[in-house]
Simulated scan of single mutants.
Amino acid sequence: MQMNEYKYHYFFTSFDIETFDLDDFKYNFVNITSFRLIDVGDVSVRSILKGMEVYNSQYKNESIYHRKLRTIQTEPALVYDSVYIFAIGLKTLEQSHTLRISNASCEEEIPWDGGLSLINYINSVEWRGLTGPIQFKEGRRVQFKLDLVKLRQHSIVKVGEWSPETRLNITEPSLFFDAGALNVTLVVITILALQKMPYSCNECCSSSH
């Protein structure tokens, strides 16, 4: 399709661009940008991934850890962090409460009396995992960031950051512009499409009691 050159810019919505085979795109100067949640250059991340590599080599385990790329996909990394945070919360709860195992019943709705305390302990956990610093506020994760990355000829490089607090901060704006193309006018075209609703708002509200 002749769409593999510097005139085209592709934005990948996947957080796992570093696990893709991009050799066919590296030397054509095609613009490929994406976000990532896992910073493989972080000391804590490298330490955890090193432990996974040792485990895999000892037990010959085929896992989601990419040994050649020395990275891990975002989804299993989030699962790893979630289980670890749950374990920390449960261990902290055990230090102040006597945990009793309750038999589950499909006939009786008897909640576990330690659930609220466990949630509070999980919300108080602060830890640095595969997906960066983990901290919660009212049940929501805060203080996290996404790296803005861009494909260069030899590797994928970080060119900025995004966080809920500061939003997008591009540290290498020159990588998004052609140095020889000054005063370029971009023409953007869009189509306004109106969709007729099948019923009015009043009908919607009256039917959703």
Rank of each mutant, 00 (worst) to 15 (best):
I64E: 15
Y65R: 06
H66K: 12
R67Q: 14
K68M: 08
K68E: 11
R70G: 02
T71D: 02
Q73M: 07
Q73V: 01
Q73C: 07
E75S: 15
E75D: 12
P76H: 09
A77L: 04
S82K: 05
V83W: 03
V83Y: 03
V83Q: 07
Y84P: 00
A87I: 04
I88P: 00
I88M: 11
G89V: 05
G89T: 10
L93E: 01
E94N: 15
Q95P: 00
Q95M: 10
S96G: 09
H97P: 01
I101C: 13
S105L: 10
C106W: 01
C106L: 15
E107C: 12
E108I: 15
I110E: 04
P111G: 01
P111T: 08
D113V: 08
G114C: 00
G115M: 14
G115F: 15
G115W: 13
G115Y: 14
S117T: 11
L118G: 06
I119P: 06
N120F: 10
I122H: 03
N123R: 09
V125T: 05
V125G: 04
E126F: 03
W127M: 02
W127L: 07
P133R: 13
P133W: 07
Q135D: 13
F136T: 03
F136W: 07
K137F: 15
E138M: 10
E138N: 15
G139K: 06
V142K: 01
Q143W: 13
F144I: 05
F144C: 00
D147L: 11
D147I: 05
L148W: 00
V149R: 07
L151D: 12
L151A: 04
L151E: 04
R152K: 14
Q153G: 09
S155F: 10
K158A: 04
V159G: 00
G160Y: 00
E161G: 01
P164G: 04
P164E: 11
P164N: 05
E165A: 07
L168P: 02
N169V: 06
I170Y: 05
I170P: 01
T171V: 09
P173C: 14
P173A: 05
P173N: 08
S174E: 09
L175F: 03
L175H: 03
L175Q: 09
L175P: 12
A179E: 14
A181Q: 11
A181R: 09
A181I: 08
N183M: 05
N183D: 09
N183R: 13
N183C: 00
V184A: 02
T185Q: 05
L186W: 12
V188E: 09
I189L: 03
T190G: 06
T190N: 14
T190K: 06
I191F: 09
L192V: 06
A193T: 13
A193Q: 13
L194C: 06
L194D: 13
L194A: 04
K196P: 00
K196C: 07
M197W: 05
M197S: 15
P198A: 09
P198M: 06
Y199G: 00
C201S: 12
N202G: 15
N202T: 14
